[in-house]
């Protein structure tokens, strides 16, 4: 069970009404390497990993939900007051026809979220390597969004999220080290 804190992990500021940026950001919402995929992946894998690393996946999976909420806030702020004309210019008219201004779990190309984005193999090293790859992919995605964005306030929030991906990848790498460790730590010769 979770306890909800009614605030964002990091303040989300947006300087301009820019639906096109929302279109890019939705990749991190309902895309293959997005925050939803990350949260569901870790929170599901955690059951069948060795006890020493379960807590890590629990904590990171929970933090991903906080990131999901930040992305949702960014997308919402970027689109909430946009006119249908502006949405059309941003290439969001298919989204508008289906969802109006509501958020939806799909990627930047409009493909709906699918569980095939994630995996749980039951082999600890396999699952942790997938998690490391997922964090690095998310980090790269944030870089490409920052490159495409001209909104300094938004980029500030994206930089925070990207830094968290680096830390998560670091912790997953440490989890691999924990599982690699030779059993007998007392080296008596």
């Amino acid at each position: 069970m979770w306890i909800y804190e009614k605030k964002l992990q990091y303040p989300v500021r947006v300087s301009t009404c820019n639906p096109r940026l929302a279109k890019y950001l939705i990749e991190q919402y309902g895309g293959a390497d997005g925050e939803l995929a990350a949260a569901l992946r870790y929170l599901n894998q955690r059951y069948t990993l060795p006890p020493k690393v379960i807590g890590l996946l629990n904590d990171i999976g929970t933090e991903e939900l906080a990131h999901l909420e930040m992305i949702a806030t960014m997308v919402y702020k970027l689109t909430k007051d946009a006119t249908p004309e502006q949405l059309k210019e941003a290439g969001l008219e298919p989204h508008y026809v289906d969802h109006e201004r509501a958020l939806f779990y799909h990627n930047a190309a409009g493909n709906p979220f699918t569980a095939t984005y994630i995996q749980a193999k039951g082999d600890p090293i396999t699952d942790l390597y997938e998690d490391i790859a997922a964090e690095e992919k998310a980090r790269a995605t944030y870089q490409w969004i920052i490159n495409m964005s001209d909104d300094p306030d938004l980029n500030d929030g994206l930089r925070f999220l990207r830094e968290r991906e680096i830390i998560h990848a670091q912790r997953f790498r440490e989890a691999v080290e924990i599982l690699k460790e030779e059993r007998s730590q007392k080296k008596i010769f």
Partner: peptide, 10 residues
Amino acid sequence: FYDPYYSPYE
């Protein structure tokens, strides 16, 4: 671990 990323275009 702090390694911020800025757009090279911006």
